[in-house]
Simulated scan of single mutants.
Amino acid sequence: MDQHRIFDRNLLRHRRLRALRQHGMTGDFLLARAADDLEERLSAVERRFDVAIDLASHTGLAARAIERSGKADTIVRVEQDARFLDAAFPSIVADEEMLPLKPAGAGLIVSLLSLHLTNDTPGTLLQIRRALKPDGLFLGAMAGEATLSELREVLLAAESEISGGASPRVAPFADVRDVGGLLQRAGFTLPVTDIETYTVRYDSLFALMRDLRAMGMQNILFGRSRKPVTRRFFLRAAELYAERFSDPDGRIRATFSFIWMSGWAAHESQQKPLKPGSAKASLADFLKDVETLEKK
Score class of each variant (00 low, 15 high):
Leu190Gly: 14
Glu196Trp: 08
Lys133Gln: 11
Gly165Arg: 15
Gly187Thr: 10
Pro122His: 07
Leu139Cys: 06
Asp120Ala: 06
Leu190Asn: 15
Glu153Trp: 00
Leu182Lys: 08
Leu139Gln: 07
Thr147Pro: 08
Glu161Leu: 13
Ile128Ser: 00
Thr118Val: 11
Ser160Cys: 14
Ala171Asn: 11
Val170Pro: 06
Pro134Gly: 08
Thr124Val: 13
Ser114Gln: 00
His116Asp: 12
Glu153Leu: 05
Leu137Met: 07
Thr189Arg: 14
Ala157Ser: 15
Gly123Ile: 06
Arg185Trp: 01
Thr193Ile: 02
Phe173Glu: 11
Ser160Tyr: 10
Ala171Pro: 01
Ala171Leu: 12
Leu156Cys: 11
Leu132Val: 05
Leu113Glu: 00
Val192Glu: 11
Leu132Tyr: 03
Thr121Met: 15
Ile195Trp: 00
Glu150Lys: 02
Thr124His: 05
Thr121Asn: 01
Pro134Glu: 04
Pro191Trp: 06
Ser167Leu: 07
Gly144Met: 06
Ser149Pro: 00
Ala141Cys: 14
Leu183Gly: 02
Leu113Ala: 02
Gln184Tyr: 00
Ala186Thr: 06
Asn119Ala: 05
Arg130Pro: 01
Ala143Ile: 08
Phe173Asp: 03
Ile162Trp: 04
Arg185Cys: 03
Pro172Asp: 13
Phe173Pro: 05
Arg130Met: 10
Glu196Ile: 14
Asp120Trp: 03
Thr118Met: 13
Glu196Ser: 14
Ile195Val: 15
Asp175Tyr: 03
Pro122Tyr: 07
Glu153Lys: 04
Thr193Gln: 04
Gly187Arg: 09
Leu126Gln: 10
Leu182Phe: 06
Gly144Thr: 07
Met142Gly: 04
Val170His: 02
Leu151His: 03
Gly144Leu: 06
Arg152Met: 01
Asp175Cys: 05
Arg152Glu: 09
Ala146Gln: 12
Gln184Val: 12
Arg185Ala: 13
Arg185Met: 10
Ile162Asp: 04
